[in-house]
């Protein structure tokens, strides 16, 4: 089984995803932005960075790249796609996950450790998580999660909010000005998934907390969840996604 990491011109955190996949013991391959060839991968990571320089708006040019049309087809057939940081921005611009990422409320780049908590432990991206808060880096200027109130209500009802920023002790963050929420995301949302549950994006970098020597390896809970879900999907003969599979099934 192989997991692909897309390299757009300007991707820079692809090395972190490749490193984390290597730590997970899985065969990682680079998917080049100009090629629609998916190399038979069982899952795809859209990594962090500044795809195409993030000119105009983060992620907006990347959505038109040849590789993204293949990624869309791959997702439609039930393949697992995880967008991290810039990858999340690309997914949101592509309409593969709901919502938008606005400039950080501080109007400054935010590069530091934050705490996030998986909001459900039965998703393909979190089923190996312990449920405790994870200490992982953020590194972005446009990470303020935004959707209108009705959409936010619907996301919560449907269980599509996968990660929230929390305090270091795991307690919830309610005020968007609270520094535990590094970008002012609405309802402290750090990551969401699509309605069929096979495409997810988050702003923090779990793949950078992949080894104890770097501080902790808690981020591997997310990476290993993805790898295991992809292996199971492959083993089951790549079943098509069930509509609204995640429907409030907590």
């Amino acid at each position: 089984m192989k997991v692909g990491v897309v390299t757009f011109p300007g991707s820079n955190s692809d090395v972190d995803s490749l490193n984390a996949l290597t730590v997970a013991g899985v065969d990682a391959v680079t998917l080049w932005h100009e090629s629609p060839d998916m190399h038979g991968v069982s899952a795809v990571i859209l990594p962090g960075g500044f795809a195409y320089g993030d000119y105009i708006r983060a992620g907006v040019i990347a959505r038109f790249s040849p590789v993204m049309s293949s990624v869309k087809d791959f997702a439609a057939t039930g393949g697992f796609v995880l967008g991290i940081c810039n990858g999340f921005q690309v997914l949101a611009e592509s309409g593969l996950v709901p919502g938008a990422l606005l400039r950080n409320r501080s109007l400054r780049f935010a590069g530091r450790l934050v705490s996030i908590k998986p909001q459900r432990l039965d998703s393909p991206f979190t089923h190996l998580a312990t449920g405790a808060a994870l200490r992982v880096p953020v590194a972005h200027g446009e990470g303020c999660y935004y959707a209108d109130e009705a959409t936010l209500d619907e996301l919560e009802r449907a269980g599509q909010v996968l990660f929230r920023y929390v305090h270091e002790d795991g307690s919830p963050v309610t005020d968007p000005e609270d520094t535990a929420n590094p970008n002012g995301s609405l309802r402290a949302i750090a990551g969401v998934c699509n309605s069929t549950g096979n495409v997810a994006g988050l702003m923090p970098h779990p793949e950078r907390m992949s080894e104890g020597v770097l501080g902790n390896d808690g981020g591997m809970q997310i990476v290993r969840s993805l790898v295991e879900s992809a292996a199971a999907w492959e083993k089951a003969g790549r079943p098509a996604p069930k509509a609204a599979k995640l429907e409030a099934g907590r």
Binding site: F109, A110, H205, R208
Partner: peptide, 12 residues
């Protein structure tokens, strides 16, 4: 905190 200090997964 306005800098990315962790990209490349080498920062100890």
């Amino acid at each position: 905190e306005q800098y990315d200090s962790s990209v490349q997964s080498n920062t100890v």
